[in-house]
């Protein structure tokens, strides 16, 4: 699904990613953990194609294609989805309108007929039940006046509607109380599928109690310094990130599966 090789990226003049290697196979869920400033968000942004980070070397293969050569919207239409840490508000644009425009842009790209309003509504209402969302949220402006929890649920709703092949969840647990976290996690878990991969970027181990990853990687100073199974997250929880920092430099582990 995704093969990242020796990826280096800078924000401005500052190198942030300093040689990331990672392979994610179809159906796998990978968690990427790390302290603030370790490059987690930059990695999400680079994969989604945000312009504020510049790739200086390395490669990313997505379904055997050069991901970095694609525009932001092409990646999205090819099935790369980013659940935002801070979902933006778009005043005056109905949530339902954005969802429909997004889904149809994707369907068009794949040579499928666009869904009409009736079919689309049926589809989206079905997905909303999953996220325990009130239908009135469809007709509100995108994220405008939404609570933190509603915004995150809205992100996962978009994911459910767009059915991506590779979902990147950027700090999806941040700002959620425990009830909202459970709803979001249920939504995500229900979307796990043999042909769908996920990368969860998170600071805390808490999210991983609800969404069990297949692999956990620890990112520090722009590199993956440790990889393992879910138990690695628990160790981190116990010892903190400082424990990783004690590792000798260059102790990079082979990661991925």
């Amino acid at each position: 699904m995704l093969i990242i090789k020796d990826l280096h990226a800078s924000v401005g003049d500052k190198p942030i990613l300093k040689g990331i290697n990672l392979e994610v196979k179809a159906g796998e869920v990978h968690a990427i953990m790390g302290p603030n400033g370790s490059g987690k968000s930059t990695l999400s942004n680079v994969l989604a194609g945000r312009e504020n980070a510049t790739v200086t070397s390395g490669s990313v293969l997505y379904q055997d294609r050069d991901l970095l050569a694609l525009d932001v919207e092409e990646r999205a239409r090819e099935g790369v989805f980013l659940a935002f840490q801070y979902p933006v508000e778009i005043p005056g644009v109905g949530n339902v309108y954005l969802l429909k425009a997004a889904l149809n842009a994707q369907r068009k790209h794949r040579g499928l007929p666009e869904l009409d309003a009736m079919d689309f509504l049926a589809l989206v209402k079905d997905k909303m039940k999953l996220m325990e969302m009130n239908e009135t949220m469809l007709y509100r402006s995108v994220n405008e006046g939404f609570s933190g929890g509603e915004k995150k649920r809205n992100e996962i709703l978009q994911m459910a509607v767009l059915e991506p092949r590779l979902a990147i969840l950027d700090e999806t647990d941040s700002g959620l109380d425990i009830d909202a976290l459970k709803i979001v996690a249920n939504g995500v878990n229900s979307l796990r599928a043999p042909d769908r991969s996920m990368i969860m970027v998170t600071h805390y181990q808490r999210l991983l109690d609800y969404i069990k990853p297949d692999y956990v990687h620890v990112l520090a100073e722009g590199r993956i310094v440790r990889s393992g199974g879910p138990e690695l997250a628990h160790e981190l929880e116990k010892h903190g990130y400082a424990w990783i920092g004690d590792e000798p430099a260059g102790a990079e582990v082979k990661h991925g599966s």
Binding site: R50, N52, A101, A105, H109, Q158
Partner: peptide, 17 residues
């Protein structure tokens, strides 16, 4: 915002749209 634009494009819309 660049944020709004990036968000929409990440959902598959072209920059113009």
């Amino acid at each position: 915002g660049e944020d709004q634009l990036f968000f929409c494009r990440q959902r598959g819309l072209s920059a113009e749209d």
